[in-house]
Amino acid sequence: MSILYMLIPIAVLLIAGAIWFFVWSVRTGQFEDLEGPAYRILMDDDDPLIPPEARPPPRRPDDPGR
């Protein structure tokens, strides 16, 4: 049981860390927009990295692959 005398203070320190971390994220504006990021993740952001000439031909809507 005496291990708790060490573990619980460590937990308190972790909480302090978590609060600091949250305050930091608020200060850097990460909570400004609570709706957008939820959608943002659904939109692929990587295709412009592929040069246009190397891009696969446009797929057709009736393509069974989608």
């Binding site: 937990a11 308190v12 909480i15 978590a18 609060i19 949250f22 305050v23 608020v26 200060r27 909570f31 400004e32």
Partner: peptide
């Protein structure tokens, strides 16, 4: 607005994290 919102978020976070513990 920005300041008010940030303050409210900080208060909420402190209360949430501490209440769980």
């Amino acid at each position: 607005y920005r300041r008010e919102r940030q303050r409210a978020l900080r208060r909420l976070a402190v209360a949430g994290l501490c209440s769980m513990q």
